[in-house]
């Protein structure tokens, strides 16, 4: 059974890129457009790995991560955060919120898959 990855990003471009890279690597992909939507999709699809953006409307990545970690059913799911090189403080804050790891943008498909491999049980 292939791994299901949930991607949470408000940018359609980013969602499409993640979809392309993840599908090519053989993952199943479910998508959400912001933190609120992400928590809902999480409940429906029980992914094994989550990749989330930080800056999103309604609920940002930090709120989303905290939400996942508070959710008894899903708090063990590894969460990778998409961050930009230029903002290390974001990474730290995401980790405080409970992020498992991070992917620095712009990412290559290889880097993406490697990061997933590093956190997937």
């Amino acid at each position: 059974m292939s791994l299901t990855v949930l991607t949470v990003d408000d940018s359609r471009t980013m969602r499409d890129m993640l979809m392309l890279a993840l599908k090519d690597a053989g993952f199943d992909v479910v998508q959400a457009v912001d933190g609120v939507h992400g928590l809902e999709v999480l409940d429906q699809s029980s992914p094994q790995v989550i990749i989330t953006d930080i800056n999103m409307p309604r609920m940002d990545g930090f709120g989303f991560i905290e939400g996942v970690r508070r959710d008894n059913r899903h708090r063990g799911v590894p969460i990778l955060v998409l961050t930009t090189e230029s903002d290390p403080s974001k990474k730290d804050r995401a980790r405080q919120a409970g992020a498992t790891g991070w992917i620095v943008k712009p990412f290559s498909p290889a880097k993406l898959v490697e990061a997933i491999r590093r956190v997937a049980a």
Binding site: G35, E40, R58, D71
Partner: peptide, 22 residues
């Protein structure tokens, strides 16, 4: 720690908003 109502409220909010989102 997670059981404090303050900490739990955003999640509740999230659930409430979620139906609209989808």
């Amino acid at each position: 720690v997670a059981a404090s109502p303050l900490a739990a409220s955003p999640a509740a909010q999230a659930t409430a908003d979620a139906s609209g989102a989808s």
